[in-house]
């Protein structure tokens, strides 16, 4: 059983087939890259996996259980957390409070427990939040409003919030978008360390060096169809991939 199984997944928007009969999987502890030209359907596939968009047909299983048709929060609570292509943090909340939402989302706190509960639960949520903040190196800025962080820091904030959920699978939609070369290299190293600690990661990226450098397997989409699914070296030499990228300079 793979961690995530995507089977013959299709999504139509009117006449447009954004994702067309895609089958692939993510094993526990794997680091998979998902690439493809603009409009290939990468984000749509992520939305299908995480429950933000309904499937037209096909099936998605996570840890052996069908999750297609489940609401995003249900899928998230099962251990899949994601970031968004267009960086989404909670701007008017502090860095700490941002990340705490990931902790409380995964651990839960009822209204009753918030009022009358004992300290233990809140302390556990706090501890988990600190752990995620330390992990991305934002502990020092914990009191800063998210809106006041630099763009690069906000990217890490978004990842910290996802990590606070202690997911089994982390899906990142273009984590390096908008970062310069050295920032991208640093982020690649960071994602690598997350994966070294056993976290399965699936990431969409336009930066080829990043994808080819850290991923153990690369899935290529073009016009909604999967055209390659192999190790980076194989994908790099694949004529179908080269053709899909012709004239579409990333």
């Amino acid at each position: 059983m793979s961690l995530l199984e995507i089977e013959n997944v299709t999504r139509r928007f009117g006449g447009l087939v954004a994702v067309d009969d895609v089958t692939t999987r993510v094993e526990a502890g794997e680091l998979v890259g998902l690439i493809g030209p603009n409009g290939a359907g990468k984000t749509t596939l992520f939305n299908l996996i995480s429950g933000f968009t309904a499937l037209t047909s096909g099936a998605v299983r996570f840890k052996g259980a069908a999750i297609d048709g489940s609401k995003p929060h249900v899928i998230a609570a099962r251990g899949m957390s994601r970031t968004f292509q267009n960086l989404r943090v909670f701007p008017n909340m502090s860095v700490f409070d941002n990340v705490s939402v990931g902790s409380v989302g995964a651990m839960g706190q009822s209204a009753f427990a918030a009022v009358f509960g004992r300290r233990g639960r809140s302390d556990a949520i706090s501890a988990r939040t600190w752990e995620a903040l330390e992990r991305v190196g934002l502990a020092e800025q914990s009191e800063e409003l998210a809106a006041n962080l630099s763009y690069g820091k906000r990217k890490y904030l978004e990842i910290a919030r996802a990590l606070a959920m202690r997911p089994d699978l982390l899906i990142l939609d273009e984590p390096a978008a908008g970062l310069n070369d050295s920032e991208t290299a640093e982020l690649a190293r960071f994602i690598r360390t997350l994966n070294d600690d056993g976290l399965a990661v699936m990431l969409v990226e336009h930066d080829m060096n990043l994808v080819m450098g850290i991923c153990s397997r690369v899935v290529v989409l073009a016009s909604g169809r999967k055209i390659a699914d192999a190790e980076p070296a194989v994908v790099r030499a694949d004529p179908a991939v080269l053709e899909a990228y012709l004239g579409v300079d990333e």
Partner: peptide, 21 residues
């Protein structure tokens, strides 16, 4: 409380809150 933080996340971006479980 952390319950309150969850409420604030609804105000900030409820889709994003959904992705946080």
């Amino acid at each position: 409380s952390y319950y309150g933080n969850a409420l604030r996340s609804l105000r900030e971006d409820d889709q994003c809150a959904d992705a946080m479980g």
